[in-house]
């Protein structure tokens, strides 16, 4: 749990510091407030706080980019947010499971994987912030097309997931078990 809180503090600190240095002292309070709410939610075992904090801090990272904060700082803030969200999720799964076999190994494997993925994200993302190429309208359209298609697929999947939840998935699962 200390690691989760540490990562949330790091996330809020990176984004707040970036915004503060860029001269947006008032906006810099937003990641601090969100980070504080997330930490409080973590300590009081509120499951929904993590789900709200992730888009909130991601939005602040985007705002930071538009507010002339270095893209590297915004990227570092976003990667730290994702890492904190994933670690918080893992902590919740462990605490909800009741019993955990080989907890130390499970945690070690997860942290190792998270470290690799976060480092990769930071590395490739940093590279992407320095690379620049010009494209025309057709090129932009060709790049945007898969993104739009992907977004439509994600939206459809999201709608299906919400529909399943509305149809009371646990009851359907119980029925399946009975059969």
């Amino acid at each position: 749990m200390r690691l989760v809180i540490g990562l949330i503090v790091l996330t809020a600190a990176i984004l707040a510091l970036g915004l503060f240095i860029a001269g947006h002292a008032l906006v810099a309070l937003a990641p601090v407030a969100l980070g504080g709410a997330w930490i409080a939610g973590t300590l009081y075992r509120r499951r929904d706080v993590g789900a709200l904090a992730l888009p909130g801090l991601a939005a602040i990272a985007v705002i930071a980019v538009f507010a002339s904060v270095s893209p590297l700082i915004a990227l570092a803030g976003l990667v730290a947010t994702l890492a904190a969200w994933n670690l918080h999720d893992m902590e919740q799964r462990i605490s909800l499971a009741g019993a955990v076999a080989g907890e130390a190994v499970l945690r070690r494997v997860h942290r190792m994987r998270l470290l690799i993925v976060a480092a990769l994200s930071l590395g490739i993302g940093s590279l992407a912030t320095t690379l620049r190429f010009d494209t025309g309208a057709i090129g932009a359209l060709l790049i945007a097309l898969p993104a739009i298609l992907g977004l439509s697929r994600v939206t459809a999947a999201l709608r299906r997931a919400m529909q399943r939840r509305a149809n009371n998935e646990p009851a359907a699962f119980q029925e399946k078990i009975r059969q």
Binding site: P71, L75, L82, L122, I124, A144
Partner: peptide
């Protein structure tokens, strides 16, 4: 959704740094 949202926002605003942010959730 986060990755695609960032990518589309970056393309809509012609801001490469926002598109770069989309790489992290995509990875």
């Amino acid at each position: 959704a986060l990755a695609l949202g960032l990518a589309i926002l970056g393309m809509a605003t012609l801001n490469g740094a926002v598109i770069a942010l989309a790489i992290a959730p995509a990875i």
